[in-house]
Design a protein around this nucleic acid. Structure first.
Lengths: 171, 171
DNA sequence: ACGTACATGTAAGGAGTTACATGATTTG
DNA sequence: CAAATCATGTAACTCCTTACATGTACGT
């Protein structure tokens, strides 16, 4: 259900082909809702059939560019006013509950690797943030999401560092 | 795959019936990996068949208590040494990208509601944290996960408050 | 006795992942 | 002309959600 609305929202912001949507998911939307091409293309076909998106151009290699219709934008607005599904799955967070099953050194190695991942991702989001000043409403909303990601990563980095100190006392 | 290991890890920490695992997911593990009874019972049957858990007791109403076997514990350790799947899906985070499609007042209402949710959950996790001092290795690992949740929520609360100020300038 | 919580199960459908499959255009 | 990237599609499988289904024990 979320994927459908992610596509409608992205195509309301700017025109995209399935392929450029795929790239867009890899670079930004995917941090909140990952999606591969095998999900995107069939869903675009369904949205087109239901009149929530329309084809606006054709390009080389059979590329088709889409945009959200007025009905599609209304559907996103309707969705935004419903209760979000707050269930979140994080394999990485789950593992923490069971770190006591590993020798302390291995648990520490896990935490150190997590910290490195978070640091690398944080640096990348900072780079994206500093690329340009948000100006349009759309850019300002994307910036909200980006800053949310940065703050979450900062919390995770601090957590991993604290957890490493904790685990050091387990020996 | 994660559900399987969540069950093995939980049953390595203490014996559980399917029903008490369900409650355990609702209260703690589910914040990292939600699961309902319709997933838990069939998965327990599979783990039992594969010899990764064993039945240790029977109770009233057909209740069966399980524990992880030595082979099951080894399987958790093996899993903990594989690369975590870092994909995370958050419907709530996804919506932020598209808040520009709402009138600023409605966007602000969304953010305010999110803030309330985070505050309530934070208070609940603090209550759980203050219930008892962690002593065993298992309790210390669960505490790591709990503190991770608290830090993440604090970041989300600060983010929501900053975002509310931002959205106030959209008018 | 009645309601609530305990306790387990299955089935249908939807969502997501991985693998299979193909071909055109651009860049070096 | 070779490799990388652009571009789209389908199929099988696994996982997750929702709904249907049933029965027992405990507390008041």
């Amino acid at each position: 259900m979320s994927l459908r609305h992610a596509l409608l929202g992205a195509l309301a912001a700017e025109h995209h082909t399935g392929y450029s949507l795929l790239k867009h998911f890899e670079q930004s939307l995917g941090y909140a809702w990952p999606a591969g091409h095998s999900q995107i293309y069939p869903e675009l076909a369904r949205l087109l059939e239901r009149g929530l998106i329309e084809q606006t151009a054709s390009g080389p290699r059979g590329a088709r560019t889409y945009a959200t219709t007025a009905a599609g934008v209304e559907e996103v607005r309707r969705w935004l006013r419903t209760e979000p599904d707050r269930r979140v799955r994080s394999d990485a967070a789950l593992r923490v509950f069971f770190l006591w099953l590993l020798p302390p050194d291995d648990a520490a190695a896990y935490l150190a690797a997590e910290r490195e991942r978070y640091l690398a991702l944080h640096a990348e989001l900072e780079r994206i943030r500093d690329e340009e000043e948000p100006e349009t409403p759309k850019q300002r909303a994307y910036r909200l999401a980006l800053v949310g990601g940065l703050l979450a990563l900062e919390a995770q980095i601090r957590w991993a560092e604290w957890a490493l100190e904790e685990v050091a006392t387990w020996r």
